[in-house]
Design a protein around this nucleic acid. Structure first.
Lengths: 222, 222
DNA sequence: CACTCATGTTGACGATGTCAACATCCCGGC
DNA sequence: GCCGGGATGTTGACATCGTCAACATGAGTG
């Protein structure tokens, strides 16, 4: 439903003045609402995020929201979608910082990029794996974004298996193992459960775990 | 919509009669509210669980809840506490089914018991790791119950390290690695992300992963 | 220039978490 | 045995929330 064209708006506000209708009534409410939501998520956890509050932040009446989103869950889905895009970007970015990496090493790097994103945007990440946010086919864009993130992992695992750097097990199984680990680490961190004096920072844990796991599996392979 | 059969209230009401003053007006409202909440969690996810709804289910007025819980979060904390107790019990039970298990094997069994519980009580489990349910020192009973569950893991890891069946790494690090994996697997399953035709059931995954991980780490050890 | 459709507003409804004031009734001390 | 106090439960109210229906406005097209 609806086009969902407007993706961006980096506009320098005044600078682009007369260009493409920038002022209907509000400008770009949809974007403003999502931004307000992201800001709110960054400060407080989710749960403390109300449609009316977002409308207020955008300087607009409560029901204006419904011109852009069917309901609250719809808004949340849009935000979660952006979250997965950010997650993919974080992994990609990390990969590009180390171009010559081997198959297995690339997998580890992906894991680090994954955890990086999750701990940099805790509330956002939590929302992405919220109530039943995914799995629900209700939001194709969400599903696609999530599938893309996961696909990066799968690809890396698959490559590593082919290269003989992982045990010859079914790719989905190894991917799930890997995902579980990285997801669990991110969640525990964001729940504050890893803030212990006898533990290194989560970034470092992510690195160490990756190495350990990869090496262990690699060794175990034959 | 409003069936809410009001599940239980085990006590034979009359039978325990004179025992510790347990009957003022309702009998044991606190217990009844928690039971109602558990029933509601089992059916619908959390989020759809209102104090007023619980009061209704218990056949009591909305504000009666506040005679037993300071607020909603307080109730949720009590429920989460019971969750951790159930989690510990599930792990313990599983251990006792295989008394002669070696150190490393015991760790794997713990993991299976953990995942068992999590997938048997999805909404409850999610609540246990909710907003900031733990980590908050606000609820000592919760913290204690959670610490006990985690302590079981730590003990098993520690034993396995001592027995030379795990790499000689700091126990907290290995425990966290293990916990991350098992927690992540549980979460992904409960989010419906593991319901794929190319994956075995989560129970089986849990078993396979445990074996794989344990063996890989064991092999890697020297 | 008029029409139309997207956008935004007002007002309302039912539900929720929570508070303050009031009612009830079990229990231990006289 | 009575009685007063404190634990328990109730009524009524408030602010907030998600959402709906009816209405207003204004941008861009014919």
């Amino acid at each position: 439903m609806s086009a969902y064209v407007n993706v961006v708006n980096i506009n320098g506000v005044g600078t682009v003045s007369a260009v493409q209708g920038e002022n209907y009534h509000h400008g770009d409410l949809r974007r403003a609402l999502i931004d307000a939501a992201l800001a709110a998520l960054a400060e407080n956890g989710p749960g403390t995020l109300s449609l009316r509050g977002l409308a207020r932040a955008a300087g607009v009446s409560a029901t204006a929201v419904y011109r852009h989103f069917a309901n609250k869950e719809d808004l949340l889905a849009a935000i979660a979608t952006e979250g997965f895009e950010g997650l993919s970007a974080s992994m990609q970015q990390r990969l590009e910082r180390e171009p010559g990496a081997g198959r297995l090493r690339r997998l580890v790097i992906l894991g680090e990029g994954y955890v990086d994103y999750a701990i940099a945007h805790p509330a956002h990440y939590r929302l992405m794996f919220g109530p039943r946010m995914l799995a629900r086919g209700e939001y194709p864009a969400l599903a696609a974004a999530a599938a893309h993130s996961y696909g990066m992992l799968e690809q890396a695992v698959s490559d590593a298996i082919t290269a003989g750097e992982l045990p010859a097990m079914p790719e989905p199984v190894l991917s799930t193992l890997f995902w579980s680990w990285v997801h669990g680490l991110a969640m525990l961190n964001n729940d504050g459960l890893l803030a212990r004096s006898d533990l290194p920072g989560t970034n470092e844990l992510s690195h160490d775990f990756g190495e350990l796991l990869a090496n262990a599996l690699n060794q175990f392979r034959e």
